[in-house]
């Protein structure tokens, strides 16, 4: 990614979590998560449902607020300002600015149904990155070509398959040239035969040097594309390490039990 090369190495860690804690309706969803993600790293997060993986991602781009700990994206505290030990919520505009630098791809795609694929990708470029319509169209078109949908630019989401919709969603997020991309179970809602086309795009993105946090059940993707795998359970990181280490030599009981469900899948 051009941005990664142009900016001097002020922060090696794009995302830093310090003791992240989140509570919702009397339940502790995240109980003190510590994590550092370096530039260009592909981090895969696995774990049983309810472990807090999705909430973790949603906190990073402040779609969910958090009560304890800190989140830093490229050195900046996410969502709050701290002064004299008091924490206040940032303004809507400041939060929006931060979110523009963090791309997210959702399980249910969430494309805007009243806009074509091209318009979906262009919206952020025009309204947030303030590109001219011509420049936005150019960039959007090239991203759609890059994900293999150059011939579907004028199509509405309803006319696209699930895999195609998700690829448009990826293009929409990546066209913003974010510092980090978050993938929240991007292939879980897809029919099996469509999963690979999306994983292919994600692998391509990883090869180009994008920093990625990927929540997924696709263990083969984790092994082949991931640089580090993190196992979460009940709101904490239980174990982490290189893919071979996690999958072939799991240390904790909980991880062994979890991987047991996927026997034959990696």
């Amino acid at each position: 990614m051009a941005t990664a090369d142009a900016i001097p190495e002020v922060n090696r860690n794009i995302v830093v979590l310090e003791g992240l804690a989140k509570r919702f309706a009397a339940a502790d969803i995240l109980r003190g998560v510590n994590l550092e993600v370096t530039r260009g790293e592909v981090l895969v997060i696995i774990g049983p449902s309810g472990s807090g993986k999705t909430t973790l991602l949603r906190c990073i781009n402040f779609l969910e607020d958090y009560q304890g700990g800190r989140i830093f994206v490229d050195g900046e505290l996410v969502g709050y300002e701290e002064a004299d030990g008091k924490r206040t919520r940032r303004s809507d505009a400041a939060i929006a600015r931060m979110r523009a630098d963090v791309g997210m791809v959702f399980q249910s795609f969430n494309l805007f149904p009243h806009m074509t694929a091209l318009d979906n990708v262009m919206l952020g470029l025009c309204s947030v990155r303030k590109l001219s319509a011509a420049a936005a169209r150019c960039s959007a078109a090239s991203w759609l070509e890059r994900v293999g949908l150059g011939d579907k630019m004028a199509a509405f989401p309803a006319q696209l398959s699930g895999g195609q919709q998700q690829r448009v969603a990826i293009a929409r997020a990546v066209a913003m040239e974010p510092k980090v991309m978050l993938f929240d179970e991007a292939t879980s809602a897809l029919d099996p035969e469509l999963v690979n086309e999306v994983l292919g795009v994600m692998a391509d993105l990883a090869r180009s040097g994008m920093t990625m946090l990927v929540v997924t059940h696709e263990m083969r993707f984790a092994r082949e594309v991931g640089h580090r795998v993190v196992f979460m359970d009940q709101g904490v990181i239980v174990e982490q390490g290189k893919p071979q280490q996690i999958f072939d030599r799991p240390e904790s009981d909980r991880l062994q039990a979890f991987l047991g469900h996927f026997a034959g899948n990696s």
Binding site: N61, R99, G103, L123, A173, M176
Partner: peptide, 8 residues
């Protein structure tokens, strides 16, 4: 969520 996440 999607609109927020692209920074609108």
């Amino acid at each position: 969520d999607a609109a927020k996440s692209i920074g609108l």
